[in-house]
Design a protein around this nucleic acid. Structure first.
Lengths: 125, 125
DNA sequence: CTAACAAGTAACCTTTCGGTTACCAATGAC
DNA sequence: GTCATTGGTAACCGAAAGGTTACTTGTTAG
């Protein structure tokens, strides 16, 4: 590896970036927080963790590279938003590849999601 | 953190193990290979990669800790099998947590999975 | 029995990860 | 204008990840 003169194909694919970004518990938690409260600032997000603001910024960068987080400058603040699109792409790939293991499961899934949606409707009414 | 006398909760959850195991491209590829050809040996699996057999063994260990791979000794060989269960758990958690982002998508997903299953049926007939 | 073969372990090395502190730049409040 | 506040960068550090080679163990073949 160190003595290999030929450049190996270690280019990072989109899937690599997404899985890598999701590999850290704090980053998954960040997505949860941003999903619940879109438009948080960097400091607002950092306040939920024990590590420093700078560490938070680095995690944000990882999430942004993977496309899981988008941000918008607003004055001196930066507003953060969760973006589900890359996760949906991963879902598509894996449900295709592993479809033979999913027989009869997607229906349950749909039921749960619909039940959730209904519960939300009731709450709002 | 270094000066913190209180033990932080850095215990590894099942979700941590699964996401961590999936974070490496080669390990995801291994699951693909085992899904296509269940019961491969360690060497058979290692032959699909450029790195060494020992590196393969370490990857197998990571996958096994996460429950994504199970193995069965058979003589001097070790037969490897993919186990989808942990992934299904992750799916359940994420589809619950992110259900509000999934409106109208699960139906498409089910269609694709069913179409795949039908295609497989035809092939076998 | 002996030789080959599959799997696993040990020790080591380099790179990446995840964090820190210290400093810098831009913006908003007053 | 001054100064606090928000965000970002640089340099550094320890731990973990991911790989290697060398050696060991167990099992089948002949």
């Amino acid at each position: 590896m160190t003595a290999d003169p030929i450049q190996s194909d270690d280019i990072l694919t989109a899937e690599d970036l997404v899985f890598h970004a999701l590999a850290h518990r704090a980053r998954r938690r960040m997505l949860d927080l941003l999903k619940m409260a879109p438009g948080m600032t960097v400091q607002g997000l950092a306040s939920h963790f024990e590590f420093s603001r700078v560490a938070t910024i680095k995690h944000i960068a990882r999430l942004e590279e993977a496309g899981l987080l988008v941000s918008k400058k607003h004055g001196r603040s930066r507003l953060l938003y969760f973006n589900v699109m890359p996760i949906q792409s991963i879902y598509d790939r894996w449900t295709d590849e592993y479809s033979s293991f999913w027989s009869g499961r997607i229906a349950d899934l749909q039921q749960r999601v619909e039940a959730r949606a209904a519960a939300r409707e009731n709450k709002h009414a």
